[in-house]
């Protein structure tokens, strides 16, 4: 006979104290570690800003802030369609789930196109990861590192979404897979909610 562990009533006992599958637990642990990566980068960006007297504020309302706001709207909307996809797959409506995942892909792709355009514009202005025309070189180092790492996440997310959409259509992927994919996509959105104010809004030109 297996003895009941002490304080089992606090976590409902059993062999699954968290009440989540191993895939979902794995994704959450990854997201927590990724949050620390992005958190460390964002905080080091703030550190560089506070310690640099010539930190530039180069972004005018048009086009930089306007495009970055539009990118934010794309990501927020793609998060909404993703949560609709998770809801649909929970109901067993695979068609609606796939349709909403594809809308999410569209939102993410629009974000990437707008962001690539922003990068190309800045590069044409002479901005490099090691220098920029406005002041502290660390500004452009922070800009390219943070937005670049985020863009890698968006790009990976788009591939992940397409794999899950294909699998959901064929019935190979379950609701749990859609839900876990949703967790990743919402995280990409969540991180942008910190990058957008810190990189763009704190650098609106006077």
């Amino acid at each position: 006979m297996i003895a009941t562990p002490p304080a089992a009533h606090l976590w409902n006992g059993g062999s699954s104290p968290y009440g989540v599958g191993h895939k979902k637990l794995g994704m959450w642990l990854f997201l927590v570690s990724d949050s620390i990566t992005f958190g460390a980068l964002l905080i080091s960006c703030m550190y560089a800003r506070v310690s640099s007297p010539n930190w530039p504020t180069p972004f005018p309302a048009w086009p930089s802030i306007a495009f970055a706001s539009l990118m934010t709207l794309c990501l927020l909307t793609s998060s909404l369609t993703m949560v609709f996809a998770v809801d649909a797959s929970k109901r067993g409506d695979r068609r609606a789930a796939v349709r909403n995942i594809l809308w999410t892909v569209l939102g993410g792709a629009a974000f990437m196109v707008l962001h690539a355009n922003e990068w190309l514009r800045l590069i044409a202005e002479g901005v490099r990861p090691w220098s920029n025309p406005w002041g502290a070189p660390l500004f452009s180092a922070a800009f390219f590192t943070l937005t670049g790492l985020h863009m890698v996440h968006v790009f990976t997310g788009l591939i992940y979404l397409l794999i899950v959409a294909t699998g959901t259509r064929s019935g190979k992927r379950t609701h749990e897979d859609v839900e876990i994919c949703g967790l990743y996509w919402h995280f990409v959105d969540l991180v942008w909610m910190f990058i957008f104010p810190l990189i763009y809004l704190m650098s609106v030109s006077q």
């Binding site: 998060s79 967790l183 910190f194």
Partner: peptide, 29 residues
Amino acid sequence: MVALMALSVAKAGMIMNWFMHLGTERLTF
């Protein structure tokens, strides 16, 4: 910076609670 970060934390909380359904997970998790 403080004001923007406070608003961002509020937004992150909303995304985690409602979109990532963390509010419906077990408290231990």
